[in-house]
Amino acid sequence: MNLAQKKDLLGLKDMSKEEIELILETAVPMKDIIKRDIKKVPTLRGKAMVTVFYEPSTRTRTSFEIAGKYLSADTVNLAVATSSVQKGESLKDTIKTIEVMGFDLIVMRHSMSGTPHYVARNTDMRVINAGDGANEHPTQALLDLYTIKEKKGTLEGLTVTIVGDILHSRVARSNIYGLSKFGCEIRVVGPSTLMAPEIEKLGVKCYYDLEKALAGADVVNILRIQKERQHTGLFPTLDEYANLYMVNKDKLKRAREDVLVLHPGPMNRGVEIASEIADGAQSLINEQVTNGVAVRMALLFLMMGGTRDEITN
């Protein structure tokens, strides 16, 4: 089984549980490659991929780039700030230009929801969504799922609490779409102004009180708070936000003793997460970054035609 018949990876919303499991399983041997002394396999030699990021990012872009390189794909990063976007070229024209250079796959991030879907409709290249607006960030959720599964042995039946700006978070949404396929109890918690309308219909439980939301949780996933949100009046001050929603030692006591702490990064220490937690024994934040490379390797590999047996045998 591979993902070759799936042209694009746009979100977890429309992925099956089996497809997600395949990616997670394939990431296991990929992680071994990262830990080797010689971190390169010839699997994707002759394939070309490009990352196009219309929004700043360090870890996701770098993660995709190195994942492609470990698999021997030729990897190019389009620096949008210096590209033709500044000259007023339409996205469609930019994509066509990239396509005719011979790229097989494009990794795209955009501040506007649905832009990767629009691009996917207009190109023969495979498209991976590296985050679109407040819609989805599927590879982040996949690496979160991988990290949880690696530590807990399973995803089935876990209680996962997602803390922070749910309204604007594509990480929250992709996690919800992914985890709900594994029968997890998903809780979202944050200020009411940052809660997405009718989110309960996604099968999640909605909380405004962090301690209640953490009670008995197996996993807590802490979202980055965008400081700009304060200026649009969605919460009064960062101090008040931290008072109510910063995950610290005291609050985390409500969760299970073996709770896992995730954060997609970059962190605002002292705002959404206390340093004692970020650097604490339960924090998997650095582990997530490594796993991100493994998951993206698995994805690139499966999408560009590899099968799981090929890499394990």
Binding site: S113, A134, N135, E136, A196, P197, E198, I199, K201
Partner: peptide, 16 residues
């Protein structure tokens, strides 16, 4: 805002 604010603005990630 891009679409009606409600379940689908949440589901598809639009500003409502």
């Amino acid at each position: 805002g891009q679409i009606h604010e409600g379940f689908y603005s949440t589901y598809y990630g639009y500003k409502g």
